[in-house]
Amino acid sequence: MDISQSFAAAIGLILGGDPAFLAIVGLSLTVTLSAVAIAAFIGLPLGALLALARFPGRGAVIVLVNALMGLPPVVAGLLVFLLLSRSGPLGPLGLLFTPTAMVLAQTLLVLPIVIAITRQLTEDLHGEYREHLASIGLTGRSAIPTLLWDGRFALATAILAGFGRASAEVGAVLIVGGNIAGYTRTMTTAIALETSKGDLPLALGLGIVLILLTLAINAVTYGASRVGARFAG
C-alpha cells in the first residue's frame, strides 16, 4: 500500500466536503466534546475536593482513581452496554446504540483522568496558597473556586488529556454506539470499518484527518492557555 494514496484520500476527504464525512466528523466532535465537558463539570470539583478532603481511605480512593485512568475502553463500553441494554437496568430509556450512550461511555473514560490530574494539580497549588487562603477565611471547601480558577491553565492539560483519550478510543463507542451509518458512526469506528473492508488507504486517510483535528484542538488550547498564563503570571 502506498502512503501517498492515504494522504490523497485525506486531502480528498477534507476538500471534498462530502456531507456523510462531515456528519461523521461532526458526530465525533460532538460526542467527545460533550463527554469531556460533562467529565470536566463533574471531575474538576471532585478532583479539588479529593485534594483538600481528609478522610479514612483517602489514599485508597486516590490509588483507585489513578488506576481507573487505565480503564480499557472496551470495559467502559461493556459496562454502559449492560446498563443500557433493553434487558439491563436502564433499558427502558432506549439509549443503547445512540450518541447519548457514546457520550456516557466516553465520560466514564475521561472522568478518572480529569479527577486524578485535578487532584494532583490542586493539591500542589493548595500547598502554596493554604496559609494565605486560611488567613482570609477560605478554609476547606471554600478554597476550591480559588484553586480551580488559579489552576485553570494547568488544568487545561487535564482536559486535553481527557479529550485525547476520548477522541482516540474506538472500543467503547463501537460497543455502545453500534457504528450505525449516519447515526453513530464516528471517525474511529469508521476507521475500524474501512480497515475491515480492506480499504486501508481510506482508513489511514480518515486517521490522518483525525490526527489533524486533534492537533488543531491541542494547538488552540495550548496557545490560549499560554497567552492566558502570561496574563495571569
Binding site: Y129, E131, D150, G151, G233
Partner: peptide, 12 residues
C-alpha cells in the same frame, strides 16, 4: 490580618 515571609501571590 497576616503577611508572610514569602508573599503568597495568586495567579492574577
Amino acid at each position: 490580618a497576616m503577611v508572610f515571609q514569602k508573599p503568597v501571590m495568586l495567579r492574577r
